[in-house]
């Protein structure tokens, strides 16, 4: 079996959110980057678990981005994966990214394409579904569980207030979230091994983004908290009813 895991780079979850260039660019100043948590904890680790079960499994990682993404790609390789491909470009919108990935996936003949449920910076939650449509494959989104029996996958996806169990024949694109796997810390052996794993850099295809960010802004700061003392619970509830009008 061949698995393709889509890996993206995001600012650390505690990064200060600020913008520069007249609010058109995210300020990278002092920002640490990480592998997007859903890609790392769930998509990648589930792929590694599948390989542990069936050692003939091949895992490729893919990233669409410039050379500054190599550090997180190496970290992902330290967790698992046989080789990585980076499409060398300053990524465009989700359509652009998905088209680049689909183009490579078509050649690769993958049985399974895994993505995170969304990136924690631009919160698109779209790349997985877009890849599926480009490849004309079924897509299971927001998966919390993935099991394989031969070439039939049983996948649980989250829905409002519950879950749905789907059965689908490979190949399939799956976007992964909590539940799929348990987070792993790369060990020394993995880190050493990752240094020599192939990281192929390929040129992007000529594709146009369909959308463009014009500007960013920050939400208006909160007015400040209105505190009540223990014992004034009734006043709090009255304030929620009469002032905030939310109950």
């Amino acid at each position: 079996m061949k698995i393709l895991v889509c890996i993206s780079k995001t600012p650390d979850t505690t990064a200060k959110i600020a913008f520069t260039d007249n609010n058109t660019k995210f300020s990278e100043e002092g920002v640490q980057h990480i592998i997007n948590p859903y890609d790392e904890w769930y998509a990648l680790v589930r792929a590694v678990e599948l390989k542990e079960k069936d050692t003939s499994t091949v895992i490729h990682l893919i990233n669409v981005g410039d050379a500054s993404n190599d550090a997180i790609i190496r970290k992902a390789l330290a967790i698992g994966g046989d080789e990585a491909i980076r499409v060398n470009t300053a990524a465009g919108d989700d359509y652009y990214v998905a088209a680049q990935i689909a183009d490579i996936a078509k050649e690769g003949g993958y049985d399974l394409v895994l993505t995170g449920k969304e990136t924690i910076d631009y919160n698109g939650a779209s790349v997985g579904g877009m890849i599926a449509e480009f490849l004309e494959m079924p897509f299971i989104s927001f998966a919390t569980k993935f099991d394989l029996d031969g070439t039939t996958a049983t996948i649980t996806r989250e829905i409002e207030g519950g879950a749905e169990v789907n059965e689908v024949a490979l190949p399939v694109v799956v976007s992964c979230q909590q539940g799929m796997a348990e987070q792993r810390i790369p060990n020394m052996r993995g880190i050493m091994g990752a240094r020599t794993k192939p990281l192929k850099v390929v040129d992007p295809k000529d594709i146009e983004s369909l959308t463009e960010v014009q500007s960013f802004d920050l939400p208006a700061p909160k007015q400040g908290v209105k505190l009540f003392e223990p014992g004034q619970e009734e006043d709090l509830v009255k304030a929620l009813r009469d002032e905030a009008k939310v109950i």
Binding site: D94, Y95, G129, M130, E133, I159
Partner: peptide, 19 residues
Amino acid sequence: NFNGKAIAPRLSVKLKAGL
């Protein structure tokens, strides 16, 4: 929501419509 986020990206590609 869950269904919307599952369909909209596919539709965007199918119609080549910005999402």
